[in-house]
Amino acid sequence: MHAYANPARFLKIARPLTPILGWGGAALVLIGVYAGLFMTPPDYLQGESVRILYIHVPAAWLGMGGWTGIAIASIIQLVWRHPLAGVSARAIAVPGALFTALCLVTGSIWGRPTWGTWWEWDGRMTSMLVLLFLYFGYIALANSSEEKGSVSRVTAIFGLVGAVNIPIINRSVVWWNSLHQGPSITLKGSSISSELLWPLGFTVMGFTLLFGAIVLMRMRAQLAEIRTEARMRRMASE
């Protein structure tokens, strides 16, 4: 792992990887969205509004996966003091918040015709909203960190503590009576019929690759900023 502690080495891999992830992800998302809009049949009960699933599910996964990534990066920063851990955690926070917001918005749009309400304070929706606020808090804390590029220890601890919410979101529909339906895709299989399910694989994979590309771009920008600043300081002292 420490082989990539050297930013130059990291950049050598990140630079060619960014367009691969970005364009690959965009292509998969386009295929998945086209298939989800035009090729799959409507649902027997929800009708056409089922199609929002192809955006809502990847958004939920990336919102939660993003914070899991922040938590892992926080541990690595706190324990191993890896120089890129803080940079990556900071890079994840903004797209993570974006996808969490996207999940809440698409869920709300789906909820109106299906449940008959835009918003209800049930366990799943409330815990997901808490996740969005955790992201806002994390971004604010990271921006107030003294460390250039990386994040402060307090921010890393916050990233770790916030991870408690992730299993709560996941289990919220199982532990409590909730308006949100239970999990459709479990280890036992899927209760989404395969005709409706297949484009979801494309959009989940596609958005995940796009997320990776955004994180790499943000990390590179962050590292470039550190370099510029160091160079400016050197020039000023000469």
Binding site: P42, D43, T114, W115, S191
Partner: peptide, 27 residues
Amino acid sequence: NILAKHDERYMPPQLEGKMHKTETMAQ
């Protein structure tokens, strides 16, 4: 006020009846 609760099953219309038999609360 009444809200509809949707369960976790999704399928095309022609499969309805074949697979979909809701007897208990989907939890």
